[in-house]
Amino acid sequence: MRTLLEFEKPIAELEAKLEDMKKLASENNVDVSSAVRNLTNSIEELRKETFTNLTRWQRVQLSRHPDRPYSLDYIQMMCEEFHEIHGDRNVGDDPAIVGGFGNIDGQTVMIIGQQKGRKTKERQYRNFGMPNPEGYRKALRLMHMAEKFDIPVVTLIDTPGAFPGLEAEERGQGEAIARNIKEMMTLKVPVICVVIGEGASGGALGIGIGDRVLMMENSWYSVISPENCSTILWRSWDFKEQAADALKLTAEDMKGFGLVDGIIPEPRGGAHLDFEKAGETLKKTILSEIKTLAKQKPSDRIDARIDKFCSMGVVVE
């Protein structure tokens, strides 16, 4: 059963109509090909119109679409083999971050991703994609292992934020994220980060320092979610749409500011409508970026990475 966002409904209604028409025609053996063609065209028109004029808030909704591919979906689509590796070798294993060695068209990569759940139980198990400190520490452990074996790192970002819990504070959520940011700056292997869904603040940045930071077309990346921004600045949850506009948090915005390096196109209507195509595009992008980055010397890559982040910001002097 597909979940439909408000702006997806008119399209879905037309699609249902088309199905009915086809079914009726085949049952009664009538030629409706021209009507089918018309309807198909108007569906395509409507889809084009809807998805070329998405508001920022609609992008946020798409980034959270319950049918959207998550990290493990992409891993499954891209890798012939995948060996998941658990645990931070300290406190425990955080199911909100998954990671391990994968094989993409013969290229071994260390893939680390924030993982959401699809059904209620799994959502809880994955803590809604909100990592604890051990998740970030596991991620760092795996990155260092990749460095040891000279294997590129790919991170998939999809989190509503680092978990704001009591135990997370006790175990140093702030320290865990801070350390990752610093250590990722000097990883000797190529690092590619992709925001595949939600990129909320420090929780995202904790696995988000790379030679290439890319965003899927319908993802968002900012310092705070529109809802929380609305609550703090407007003192009400109701201004989330204005907040999304004010934060300028879409892939296009972030690319325009030079805060991310590129946008990965999604199938029209969003990645959830065509997993295979979305996975294929991501895979091709990752492979080509690795190829480019592998040509650089590690020290040059690190210098460029540090320079890139150090040049971000706008001030008046």
Partner: peptide, 20 residues
């Protein structure tokens, strides 16, 4: 600072890079 959104977020990266 929320009013500089993505830019503010990246200051975390910038300062950490300097510490490295």
């Amino acid at each position: 600072r929320m009013m500089e959104a993505g830019y503010s977020l990246m200051q975390m990266a910038k300062t950490s890079a300097k510490i490295a």
